[in-house]
Design a protein around this nucleic acid. Structure first.
Lengths: 241, 241
DNA sequence: TCCGATCGAATGGTCTGACCATACATTGGT
DNA sequence: ACCAATGTATGGTCAGACCATTCGATCGGA
């Protein structure tokens, strides 16, 4: 068993935070306190460095981290829109994390697909209950684009991705939508290969029919049918998982 | 409607990647190709900079991003374990992303809790079917620590967190476990406040009983009961969501 | 007066080179 | 054989310079 928390003096050294971590902490403080909101501009790197008493390099390392997390975007030049602007782009960040850890074999494709199944069947249910007309229109558009003539596998994959992302958005849950986006992006390359391996373009027609069935169930407001259609679609798309 | 892809010459400028993005791309190449595996060391920053033809500052920005994604850890000093070592710590990265975007009001607490419900009820089902003895032992240990006398709310919260993380691990899906970990961490502060607001220590006893019920259902191999117990537990823990 | 060209300024992007802090490896003395 | 002093490779940090991009202001001609 572990030692109890009151075994004697605790001389753990104060953990010395690195300069860029202090900068991150200060910026997160402002965000948590509501003094920094999406769309706001951060002070310039030089000014921030002077205000915080660190070098510009350390500020830049912190900004790089925030950028990787989808919290801000940097643009050069001058004007009201230049500089580091707070943004909300969590999906790419999530996709990057998942993709890298798939590459490191910490995540298996099987687990990714299984997680998608869990999340996406719920999203389909929720969409069948709550989807707004605007979402239905975008779903129809994505299905339509999958039927266009002379599609390349890449273009087909893009329309396929759009459909699944809009489906997740239609669930009304932003976290679910973002996770779906990230999960889908993290296996994008595998999806293209899979559809080619299954026999282009016949496989595409089958997948498009799946999407038709999902959309129809959602439009009809039938949650169970929508969930089942998504389940079936994923089973067809990733037969090995 | 958008312009068709063949409307004429496409003079989109070549996207100029920043130096640290090139570095990231090179490192990800090595990971994807399997030439870099968890536990491996990266070359030193100086050598990497020279090899790739960029400055050390650019290399450091790339390493900072990978560190934020939980892909590597850096240690100073000399020796076989010093330097930048490939690691697999995606949970903190995920938690950081979620927490920051909650702060930016891009994610609501409601959506976070709802996502937990979706993922965790599935995890409980899967755990009831597949949990290994080692996981059951760790679940029992976490429940036991929640019953210790003289717990502070923080300590209680730590044991609570452990229980939910082990539960997700017992599902056998690493992605689900990581997402749960990140979701739970991202609302850790809220959880502590909630249990205090509900009336310490009476609320703790109720939550411990919930955990008991979940554990009993998993040990009995009853997936539906386990899922229902998790559902009930989350309803009690976050009554407003 | 108007409009276009030019210049200045503020921003991020990049590089160089230096020095510090840390922790293992080596060496040399006992 | 042991232990202390020294060496060295590593990341951490900083200062300062210069480049590239973009917008706003200014100037000059029609």
């Amino acid at each position: 068993m572990s030692t109890s928390p009151t075994d004697g003096p605790d001389w753990r050294p104060v953990r010395r935070l690195r300069a860029h971590e202090e900068v991150l902490a200060r910026i997160e403080e402002q965000i948590t306190a509501g003094r920094l909101r999406p769309g706001d501009r951060l002070p310039g790197e030089r000014q921030l460095a002077e205000s915080l008493g660190v070098s510009r390099a350390s500020v830049r390392e912190a900004l790089r981290v925030l950028e990787a997390m989808g919290v801000l975007v940097s643009t050069t030049g001058r004007g009201p829109d230049a500089g580091a602007v707070l943004a909300g782009r969590p999906a790419e960040a999530l996709a990057d994390v998942l993709r890298l850890h798939v590459g490191l074999a910490h995540f298996s494709l099987h687990d990714i697909v299984e997680t998608r199944r869990v999340i996406e069947t719920w999203a389909a249910r929720s969409a069948a209950e709550h989807a707004r007309p605007e979402h239905l229109a975008r779903l129809r558009d994505a299905v339509g684009r999958m039927s266009a003539p002379d599609l390349t596998p890449d273009q087909f994959n893009a329309a396929d991705t759009d459909f699944h992302i809009v489906l997740a958005e239609a669930s009304g849950n932003a976290v679910v939508a973002t996770l779906m986006h990230g999960l889908r992006d993290s296996v994008g390359r595998h999806a293209v290969e899979a559809v080619e391996r299954l026999g282009w373009p016949d496989s595409a027609a089958a997948l498009r029919e799946d999407h038709d069935r999902i959309l129809a169930a959602i439009e009809a407001g039938r949650p169970d049918a929508a969930a089942e259609a998504v389940h079936e679609h994923l089973r067809r798309s990733y037969p090995d998982h």
